[in-house]
Simulated scan of single mutants.
Amino acid sequence: RIRRDRRNLRQMLSCSSAFQRVAFLLMAPKLKPQRLHQIAETGAEQLVKKARTMSTESSMKDAFSTYADYLNNFNEKRERVVKASRDITMNSKKVIFQVHRLSKDNKEEVLEKAGKDLEAVREQHFSRLMKELQGTDFWKLRRAFSPGVQEYVEAATFYKFCLSGTLSTLEEINATLLPLSEPSVEPLQINILDYILGLADLTGELMRMAIGRISDGEIEFAQRICQFVRQIHRELMLVVPKMDDSYDMKSKMEVMLQSVIKIEKACFSVHVRGSEYIPLLGDDAPTSYLLGGADLE
């Protein structure tokens, strides 16, 4: 009898599934009731464990599917933000080039066109960027749109200085962007870091303008630019050491210092040696020193 029970038990264990084991148990009435109860409990536990495993795998697949959708949407948004930032950069540079055409004869005409171009940058390109970033954690995408914002700040401040001789503050620039935001969503504002980085780039454009104004004989305007750039450099020297993310700013401070030195050297040269060539500034004669002609004998 013991041998027969063992043989029946081996046949039961050789069954491939828990359902077959239960069926075998029903067909084997000669097993002891206690043993039959233990085997039935083991089969039920395996069924529950298998169902639990299938449920866990399904929930994990759903979670990973959600994460995949989020990352795909995030990457697509990032590409759109990069495209908008490039458009802002390109058109802001056009505004800067337009302002550089400024002279004492066409000031109103040049600044009027530059103002219209700057407004077009806001309405056509900056508005696209704001629609993409409103209602999201825009700090995750800051590296994608920061170059365009810095270039826009540079163009806006450069235009304002040539128009009124003053510096556009961060509040003034953000105020011009408020009409582009939807009333129901918190407006996207330019942060202080991008503003300071754009302000650092402004000094390079002012240096080029100062050299150009000296060659046109506008010495006073060049001296005002020199004082203005000095003041910006002095104030930023106090701010940069306290900045957390100051790697980009430190490199720009070195370039800014070079711009200040170039303007100072040009103004100093005019002040010291002005008696040699100031009467010829702006003259059409080929002997003008600053126009690239031969020196006076």
Rank of each mutant, 00 (worst) to 15 (best):
A155T: 04
T203N: 06
Q223D: 15
M249R: 02
E172K: 04
L257N: 14
I173R: 07
P241D: 04
T157G: 01
K160V: 07
G212I: 00
A222T: 01
S164N: 02
R224K: 14
N174F: 02
L163S: 15
S164I: 00
T176K: 13
A156C: 12
K250E: 15
F161N: 04
D194L: 05
V260E: 13
M256D: 07
I192C: 05
I192A: 12
E205Q: 05
C267F: 01
D201M: 03
F158A: 06
I196D: 08
R208Y: 08
Y195S: 04
R230G: 12
K262T: 04
Y195I: 00
T169Q: 05
Y247A: 11
E220V: 08
V240Y: 11
L257M: 11
C162H: 14
I196H: 14
E205C: 01
A222Q: 03
M243I: 02
K265Y: 15
F228P: 08
E171F: 10
R213C: 09
G198S: 07
I190D: 01
I190W: 09
P241E: 03
M209K: 00
V240P: 02
P179E: 00
L197K: 07
I225C: 07
L202T: 08
L206I: 01
L199M: 15
S246E: 06
C162W: 11
D248A: 09
K250R: 15
T176D: 12
K262F: 01
L188D: 02
N191S: 08
K265V: 13
E264S: 10
D216P: 00
